[in-house]
Design a protein around this nucleic acid. Structure first.
Length: 423
RNA sequence: GGAGAGAUGGCUGAGUGGCCGAAAGCGAGCGCCUGCUAAGCGCUUGUACGCCCUAAAAGGUGUACCGCGGGUUCGAAUCCCGCUCUCUCCGCCA
């Protein structure tokens, strides 16, 4: 959510920034609601003030056994008026809030203007693409041939976009997860979290999934709960409605979780393989920082995610999302794209974002300055470190051999009982 | 699933209709005192929103907030209703 005072004072600037994202915002409606709210607020507060004063007077009169029936009657009318105004005020605030809640974040000044993912500038490229003396296979063929991925049975058990892992496949997924958690906790200074895999409406609203993107979520019937689409939701909401001490910042958390996405509107896209599933595993890094250091933290966070691919020796490139491709809550996002030889394409494997105070404002996440004691919104960041299923894809495709077997990356072998080749 | 108890400021804990944004203690901050440390003394110590002032802060002022949402009343932390969460006991269960 944007700062309402900032919005008031920068109407045109925000309008243009939203247009760059491809969003038309009706600023007239905002101004009307905002003005109406303040007008009613002022009127009702004057009346409340009067009621407070006179009620005190009534109390004193009664104590002195004086007659107060006349002013009691008058205050009855004032109270009735307050009640009416309160109802209008409540409605206006709801409308205003609903309006603000669906306005995306303002892109950071360093974010380039663009109209699609084609316009995302490449920031850096790492690694040598493997050269094969045979035609590399896509991971779904590799996985099925080795009997480590079973798409047909996943679909039988549940439905499309669900996969059954077997044997070395299941072990590989688990090994990658543990390797990444160990790297981030032991080398990069993150505290491991194991969060709930369902979250309530307030949490979903805090991080920005709701109210706008309800159709992307799985809702659990007869409850207020949603399956989390990413560990970002429960982990960022750890500090919802809290005031932290500045000395405790920055805070680094890392969490493994399964992620559940309805993938509405992606019919026909990536229908084969592990790339786009309704359920997948992810290791997520989440940071809380002071505003002045959040962009340094974003660079470090992105480097932490890249380090996973470097250690796995998988080629990748990092792009900066342009205005049109930027997520709803994000001010700036780097996507890390791993090279997939089977598809001859770079595919997203991590997304690292700085939300600035956008989520903090929605979720009332604040901190108190050591110097001066002022309370301010903090900045939240997160990034995949990495998407586990897609890392399995990258390993299978980059480490495949002519005979259909797959070499296990060296850093994963300790996590797989020393296994060197999946055959 | 059944029965009961509870939810107050950073923490502990008073408060059963007006004198309560809220006692007291602890903690924290500032100052005084003491050769250092400790003790002692004094003061300060929530958040949000609106308005005034300001370049912006600071400051002033008003309103709201005692788990959340309604209700009664001139007036609610306090009375009534609903909900959520926590704890205890019973049942069930990994």
């Amino acid at each position: 959510m944007l700062d309402i005072k900032y919005l008031r004072q920068n109407l045109e600037h925000v309008r243009i920034k939203m247009l760059e994202r491809g969003q038309e915002i009706d600023m007239g409606r905002f101004t009307a609601l905002d003005t109406q709210r303040r007008d009613i607020l002022q009127e009702v507060e004057v009346l409340r003030s009067e009621r407070n004063a006179v009620s005190k007077e009534i109390g004193e009169k009664k104590k002195r056994k004086e007659d107060a029936t006349e002013i009691i009657a008058r205050m009855g009318e004032v109270s009735a008026r307050i009640k009416t105004l309160d109802e209008t005020l409540k409605q206006t605030e709801e409308d205003l809030n609903a309006f603000l809640m669906v306005i995306p974040n303002v892109p950071h000044e360093s974010v380039e203007y663009g109209t699609s993912s084609e316009d995302n500038p490449v920031i850096r490229t790492w690694g040598e693409k493997p050269v094969f003396d045979f035609t590399p296979k896509p991971h779904w063929d590799i996985g099925e041939d080795l009997k480590i991925l079973d798409f047909a049975r996943g679909a039988k058990i549940t439905g499309a976009r669900f996969t059954l892992y077997r044997g070395a496949g299941a072990l590989l997924e688990r090994a990658i997860t543990n390797f990444m958690l160990d790297l981030h906790t032991r080398q990069h200074g993150y505290l491991e979290i194991l969060p709930p895999f369902m979250a309530n409406r307030d949490s979903m609203t805090g991080t920005g999934q709701l109210p706008k993107f309800e159709e992307d979520l799985f809702h659990v019937e007869k409850t207020d709960y949603y399956l989390i689409p990413t560990a970002e939701v429960p982990v960022t909401n750890i500090h919802r409605d809290e005031i932290l001490e500045e000395k405790d910042l920055p805070i680094y958390y890392v969490a493994y979780s399964p992620c559940f996405r309805a993938e509405a509107g992606s019919y026909g896209k990536d229908t084969r393989g592990l790339i786009r599933q309704h359920q997948f595993n992810k290791v997520e890094m989440v940071k809380f920082s002071q505003p002045e250091t959040s962009y340094d933290e974003l660079e470090k966070l992105t480097a932490n995610a890249e380090e996973v691919l470097k250690r796995l020796k998988i080629p990748f490139r990092t792009v900066s999302l342009c205005t049109a491709d930027l997520g709803f809550s994000s001010a700036k996002t780097y996507d890390i794209e791993a090279w997939l030889p089977g598809q001859e394409a770079y595919r997203e494997i991590s997304s690292c974002s700085n939300f600035e105070d956008f989520q903090a404002r929605r979720g009332a996440m604040r901190f108190r300055r050591t110097d001066g004691g002022r309370v301010e919104f903090l900045h939240t960041l997160n990034g995949s470190g990495l998407a586990v299923g897609r890392t399995v894809v990258a390993v299978l495709e980059n480490y495949q051999q002519a005979d259909g077997t797959v070499v296990v990356p060296e850093v994963l072998r300790p996590y797989m009982g020393g296994l060197e080749i999946i055959r």
